[in-house]
Simulated assay, not measured.
Amino acid sequence: MTTINDRTLPVVERPAGTFAPAPARAAHSIFHERWWLDIATQGDWKLAAVRQNDEIVGEMPYAIWRTRLWRISHLPPLTRTLGPVIQPVTGSEARQRHHTLDVTAQLIDQLPECDSFFQVLDPSVDDALAFALHGFTVSARYTFRIDARTTADEAWSRLNSKTRNVIRSASRELTILPDLSPDEFLAFYDANLAARSRTNAYGDAVMRQLVNAFVERNAGTLMGAYGTDGKLVAAVGLVWDHRAMYYLLSSRVRDAHCGSISLLLWTAIIRALERRLTFDFDGFSSPSTFSFLNGFGATLTQRLGVERQRTVYLLTRTLKRRLAPARVFAPNL
């Protein structure tokens, strides 16, 4: 067991069987789960599906929102990736490619006509050729991942010296307690938003329902870092499926130790690796976040984005962004 300053990192043991290795067949991510989509979209989602011989061989969920002017299909709140899930076939690489292209094309044909469609595909989908052939713009997005086969000692050795030092420093001043209650986490998150005069980018109601749901279903947990005075100074929300644990949410007070989130993430990494799960840092959208996450020595992993927009929608949204930039609280860090 990796230790920091001779202190074993706190990890709560789960019953054997709670986590399982990925099945041989194509697996849904947690973001594909029906209960997740029901909450994240408030029921406004549909499923494109392809059947062969009475068996579903491919499916792709999508959300639909209608505004006064637009019909939109984007990723729902707190839903990091979606995209097609296609059952593999045996045989040559060429046969598998043909099968994937054919099934994906049938799924795309079932997607609704809308003014703007956008999804980020699960990292297991490494080819968006079918989307490109159907007029979608394909772009590269990135996340950091630590493979499930990595040992704790290997993960520690890959941290850069700055990250390692702030984790050591934070461990001397903070106590990590797992399994915060949803009410405690949400109250803490809301208080930090208010202190910064920011709004919740995900929507208060949806976030509350999802946090409660993934904790109740043992599909996620909430961890907190407490100072010497016993006050909560930082917290993270984690979710998982049979393949990966995802860094979903975090919040901290203004004067929290600079290594508070780093220590929480390191604790989460240990929990993931002990359960043979890949740890996914869930992407980044700025150079500063990239620099922070890069310190953990994880593998840079591509996630493909697929997008199709009508010209009028694209021009209108571009103009709106230039005139009124969004003022929302960054979901992580």
Rank of each mutant, 00 (worst) to 15 (best):
V103D: 00
L180A: 04
T150G: 01
D109K: 10
G91M: 02
I108A: 02
A148Q: 08
F118G: 03
A94P: 01
D183M: 07
L133C: 14
L193W: 05
A148Y: 03
S161A: 13
I167L: 05
A191G: 10
F117R: 04
R158H: 09
S161E: 09
F188K: 01
S169L: 07
V166S: 04
A155K: 05
D183F: 07
T163Y: 03
T150A: 03
E113N: 12
R149H: 12
C114E: 04
N192G: 15
T163I: 09
Y189W: 13
A187L: 11
E113I: 13
V125T: 06
F185C: 02
L177D: 03
T150L: 01
R164Y: 03
I167V: 15
I176M: 04
G135S: 08
K162D: 12
R196D: 11
Q106V: 10
A191E: 15
W156A: 01
R198Q: 14
W156M: 07
R145Y: 02
N165Q: 15
R198W: 07
A187R: 14
A195H: 13
N165H: 13
F118Q: 08
G91Q: 03
S181C: 04
L159T: 12
E184D: 12
A155N: 08
A191V: 11
P182F: 06
S161L: 06
I167C: 06
D147L: 13
S181A: 11
Q106T: 11
Q87R: 08
A130G: 04
L186A: 01
L186C: 05
S169E: 10
T137F: 11
S157P: 07
Q110N: 03
T175K: 08
Y189A: 02
H99D: 11
E184S: 09
A195Q: 14
T175L: 07
A105R: 09
D179E: 13
L174Q: 02
D127H: 12
L101H: 05
T137A: 14
F117I: 10
A105Y: 06
S197A: 14
A152E: 14
Q119I: 08
R164D: 00
A194E: 13
L133R: 15
I167N: 00
R149I: 10
A187K: 14
Q119V: 11
L177H: 03
L177P: 02
S92I: 07
N192M: 12
L177V: 08
L193E: 08
R95D: 14
F185H: 01
F131A: 02
F188D: 01
A130L: 04
E154S: 13
V125N: 02
D102V: 08
R172S: 12
P178C: 09
Q87Y: 05
H98Q: 15
L107A: 03
T175N: 08
R149P: 05
C114N: 07
Q87S: 11
R172W: 08
F136M: 06
T104H: 05
E93K: 14
D102C: 09
N192S: 12
T137D: 14
S171G: 06
D190Q: 15
R172T: 13
T175D: 07
Y142D: 06
L177F: 03
I176Y: 00
L180F: 04
P123Y: 00
L101I: 06
P88K: 04
S157N: 14
E154T: 15
A152Y: 03
F118S: 05
D122A: 10
F117E: 03
T90V: 07
A170T: 07
T137W: 10
S171P: 04
L107P: 01
N160A: 04
Y142E: 06
D109L: 06
T143Y: 01
E154D: 15
D115H: 09
